[in-house]
Design a protein around this nucleic acid. Structure first.
Lengths: 386, 386
DNA sequence: AGGTTTCGTTAGTTGACCTAACAAAACTTG
DNA sequence: CAAGTTTTGTTAGGTCAACTAACGAAACCT
């Protein structure tokens, strides 16, 4: 089956900065500064070339030259003269041309549902699509993903910048899904498959990691944050020093099967007793809620989960000194009360730094955390925007 | 009091790479590649200019030029022709001139003892000095440190590259000791004081962080490792993606007062019950060992400590997917049996990745972890060697 | 003895930033 | 209201750091 690939008029030069431990050439300087200019424009508003020069420390000459390149690449456009009463030649206001390219984001984190979206360069969702996939596993699941991408790609109003996919499981830095039990994938080189098929960069990453990146890029998360996703299972994305932690075997954030406490607990599917997932996951909580009669009991279920999450997180909070914990998941599971209990448990089990306790809050990105996170990752890898 | 500052014939250009989010100029390219060449030479052995060119990907011309600069700075020297039977003009073997500069390292982690050492660029200890300081606190402690440095500086055979200090407490990235209870310091700008006094760069960092850096630089620790130091208290240094984690308020690794388990425990000086330090610290263990009669009881004490450490570390291991845990402390506390128990506890409470359990081992740097760690940090900050 | 290989250097090119200077287009002021 | 001031964006020319091409030196190979 042939896939419709939107035309891409001109290849965009990747804009990433240098890699430590590797040689550095003059052209890398160019890339770095180009990304810096684009980043400045991305985060700022109503900036002129002179503004960017002041913000970055580069000269107006250099900035003009870089902006010229970016305009040629259609990534930046001139909005017209700034209308303000000041002496001097009026500035030409610039802006990121958010419609220049689109990004496709795919979220495979939900059990029988593949969600996809077309996003512009500002991370705004232009269009959605989804596939019900009750039993899609292995090659079938891969095909379902490819079809979903194709459907979105067909309708893209502008060339594709890249494709981002967030999947449960353990995924290496090159986008090979080493293991994803629910999807039946082992050493599945999804990034390569997608990239070859659609002719653009494909980024494949763990769903919780994507949610964490979204929280940094579009939420207002600090540079040291843990994002815990409660779904069918339990996973976390860890950001330290503003950088995603992948772990030595790409399994960072896999805390669902950490045993919590020293007082037993329920038997887990993994064979151990007292795993965090037996206390806190959508199936575990909803199962208990259904069996429970009174409000008192249902609240107790969620509070117990909150306490267990706090117990598990306390050593991590102490070790990493993160500035906040962000939770993401269905609101019937993650109630305000539950968050408060978690926060209090962490406070009671760690030493306060500067007398401040670590806030535990709900994500404000709703269901789109993974979609927007993978899109942010495409922006970073292709344009150096973070 | 005037301090003897060794002569420094020529300022050495700092060799660090670029900082993300900042502009990048051609001269930064030079610094980066200079550091890369030096690093290659530092890690390799018996390398010629051509070897370095092959290893780095830079051309022989560029490498020759950079090596010329490094020879001018006395950081590199020619060892002579390589004597091997090969066609072609014989290579000139180069080496880091380890005697070109010295580094002073200071370890303030022990209760009534300030330890110092003079190290060469290879991290070899040339000379030691120490000060017994039973009650040194506040300004008195600062003066004791300055005197110790002065004593070592006087005897330095070559110009000083920099001074590194490892201290307990919470220390920011600029070397200000925000809080160090045992030394009576609050917002003490030790780096600035030392740097002004001796006219060279001063690096001040947490002692456990220094030990972790030493493990990376001179032990064979992987890029994701936690180093736990057992002393008067309990502290850890965390390295993720090869980079030290400092934490949002510079308090990463402060796990002594994390509550472990859900079954109570001894009352801690901090007011909580069941802190990790009440199970595992030199005073806590030795106190129990003294009270214990039989070998069985003493072993049980250490095993209990090992279990608790494992319980505390399990969530962190799950969250970060570190590849190993390194322990550092007195051998009567950290017995083989205790390490095994910790390792087994972590294994029992986390999910194995790739079927491999996380090894827990003793540091092989002995008592000099902090001294060599701060020296490594000076090397990194001044020469870009990591 | 002539050819081959490798090393390190010299000479000249390319790329990327810089400074200096300027025209354009606004406001300010005597 | 004309001259001066301020700010923008561009043009011209300089510096720095990498590169390619080519070469002499010094070894081994045939």
């Amino acid at each position: 089956m042939d896939s419709p690939v939107p035309p891409r008029s001109r290849p965009v030069t990747p804009l990433m900065g240098p890699v430590a431990g590797k040689k550095f050439l003059p052209e890398h300087t160019r890339r770095h500064n180009r990304a810096l200019v684009l980043q400045t424009l991305y985060r700022g508003a109503q900036l002129s070339r002179a503004d960017i020069a002041r913000a970055t420390g580069l000269t107006r000459v250099t900035v003009s030259d870089l902006i010229g390149e970016l305009i040629d690449d259609t990534l930046v456009r001139e909005l017209g003269r700034r209308e303000d009463a000041r002496p001097g030649k009026p500035a030409t206001v610039l802006d990121i041309n958010a419609a220049a390219f689109t990004i496709i984001g795919i979220d495979l984190s939900q059990p029988a549902l593949f969600r996809g979206a077309l996003l512009d360069l500002n991370g705004e969702i232009l269009r959605r699509a989804e596939t019900r996939s009750p039993d899609a596993r292995g090659v079938v699941a891969v095909d379902a993903v490819l079809d979903l991408i194709a459907e979105l790609a067909e309708r893209s109003p502008s060339p594709l910048l890249g494709i981002g996919i967030g999947s449960p499981g353990i995924i290496n830095e090159r986008g090979v899904v080493l293991q994803a039990t629910n999807l039946g994938w082992t050493n599945e080189d999804l990034a390569d498959t997608v990239s070859r098929r659609f002719g653009v960069v494909a980024v494949v990453m763990n769903d919780a990691d994507a949610a964490a990146i979204a929280e940094r890029a579009w939420g207002d998360a600090a540079a040291d944050v843990i994002v815990v996703r409660v779904g069918r299972g339990l996973g976390a994305g860890v950001i330290v020093n503003g950088q995603l932690v992948r772990g030595s075997r790409f399994a960072a954030g896999e805390i669902g099967h950490v045993v919590v406490g020293t007082d037993g607990g329920a038997l887990c599917t993994c064979g151990k007793t007292g795993c965090l997932e037996t206390w806190l996951s959508v199936p575990a909580i909803r199962g208990q809620l259904n069996r429970a009669g009174s409000d008192e009991v249902t609240n107790a279920v969620r509070e117990a989960a909150g306490v267990r999450l706090g117990i598990a997180l306390a050593p991590v909070v102490g070790m990493l000194n993160v500035s906040e914990i962000v939770l993401s998941g269905p609101p019937d599971v993650l109630t305000d009360r539950m968050l408060t209990v978690t926060e209090q448990t962490i406070a009671a089990r760690t030493m306060a730094v500067d007398g401040a306790q670590v806030p535990v809050r709900l994500s404000d990105l709703g269901d789109d955390g993974v979609l927007r996170g993978v899109a942010a990752q495409v922006l970073t890898s292709q344009l150096g925007i973070s």
